[in-house]
Design a binder for these strands. Structure first.
Length: 139
DNA sequence: TAAATGACTTAGG
DNA sequence: CCCTAAGCCATTT
């Protein structure tokens, strides 16, 4: 995987970590926030590789239609279909699903209202990369 | 190298 | 509301 994509993946994971309880974000939204509006599918890929016990609030990521994206195959965890678990987790934190659809206007995450932390996130990321480079340069 | 495969999205009927 | 088609893009066959 290219360094560019690795970076993108890291950003996505960090963004997901910031989605507040009771809110949802879409794949496309995260992909745009991470700097590449056309990589919504890749966001799905990033989430798919998460381990079952991940700390990330993966369940707060849904599709642009406000629906829980159907997984291919029959992924279930712990003993239930992941889609069902996802809707349960969402309901548990106050997100209402009407006919399987979340009202994005009401529950959609609006990070711009949470302060200018995205810029801080990018700065932090660049600082880390700079540190990596100096570490690599200094034998 | 070409074709198939998705935790996607938009547009249209 | 449901369904299709088309565009999208990285990975897998």
């Amino acid at each position: 995987m290219s360094p560019e994509l690795e970076r993108f993946r890291t950003r996505v994971r960090r963004l997901v970590a910031r989605i507040p309880a009771g809110r949802v974000a879409t794949y496309g939204q995260l992909s745009a926030l991470a700097g590449h509006p056309r990589r919504a599918r890749f966001v799905g890929r990033v989430l798919r590789e998460l381990p079952p016990g991940s700390d990330l609030p993966w369940h707060r990521v849904i599709n642009a239609q406000g629906r829980i994206s159907p997984r291919a195959g029959e992924a279930r965890w712990p003993g239930e279909p992941v889609e069902r678990r996802q809707s349960r987790l969402l309901r548990a934190e106050g997100v209402r699903l009407r006919g399987g659809v979340v009202d994005l206007a009401r529950y959609g995450w609006r990070p711009e209202e949470d302060g200018g932390w995205i810029a801080a996130l990018i700065e932090e990321e660049e600082a880390e990369e700079a540190a990596q480079h100096t570490a690599a340069d200094e034998p």
